[in-house]
């Protein structure tokens, strides 16, 4: 789920950036540092939408670095248990498939794929129903439900299921081609 929240961070800035564009430099560095990171509490920081407040800088003794407390607003993405997501399949193997929803990697085990879908190995490994009408392969788009999340320092890993009503392939590039 996406959230628009206010976050705080202490930024350290090198003395060489001190000058008329200090503020811009600070924001640029903030974006570089924060966007795309992941925290267990807030999830992935997708984008910074604005800087609310930059506090007074504190010069570090010895190094000359200055620490600024920065309040900023950001869009974060955090997957939750039970959440329904749309994701793109990145890899299919006999144990299930991996899909990505933005920065989040989701694994759907073959136990959580409907029983009528079977794994077909080959050039393009896929899961197919017995009548061949539905096919999950690389680059397919699926709608899935997250049943578990594991948050590391740098990534969030989820397992999902498509064994439920209205879940499964929503747009299959392979089928239309």
């Amino acid at each position: 789920m996406f959230f628009h929240i206010t976050l705080e961070r202490n930024m350290q800035l090198h003395p060489r950036h001190f000058g008329p564009h200090l503020r811009d430099k600070l924001v640029a560095k903030l974006m570089k540092d924060v966007e795309g990171t992941c925290s267990g509490r807030h999830g992935f920081v997708v984008a910074i939408t604005g800087v609310e407040d930059i506090g007074k800088g504190l010069i570090r003794e010895g190094t000359g670095f200055v620490t600024f407390p920065v309040k900023y607003q950001a869009v974060v993405f955090r997957p939750f248990k039970g959440e329904i997501l749309e994701a793109v399949v990145t890899m299919v193997n006999k144990m299930g498939f991996f899909a990505e929803a933005g920065p989040v990697q989701i694994f759907v085990s073959n136990h959580l794929i409907p029983d009528d879908m079977e794994f077909q190995s080959g050039d393009m490994p896929n899961y197919t129903t017995s009548d061949g009408s539905v096919k999950i392969q690389k680059d397919s788009e699926v709608r899935l439900k997250i049943i578990g999340t594991r948050v590391d320092a740098t990534e969030i890993f989820c397992i999902g299921t498509i064994k439920d009503d209205f879940l499964g392939v929503i747009n299959d590039p392979g089928a239309t081609a």
């Binding site: 136990h111 959580l112 578990g148 594991r150 397992i159």
Partner: peptide, 22 residues
């Protein structure tokens, strides 16, 4: 429940951790 994060404490797979799939 599926989705729980668990650690195996005995048996052959002792020490492994993972998420319950089924």
């Amino acid at each position: 429940k599926p989705g729980d994060h668990v650690k195996v404490v005995s048996g052959v797979q002792e020490g492994a951790t993972g998420m319950v799939v089924k």
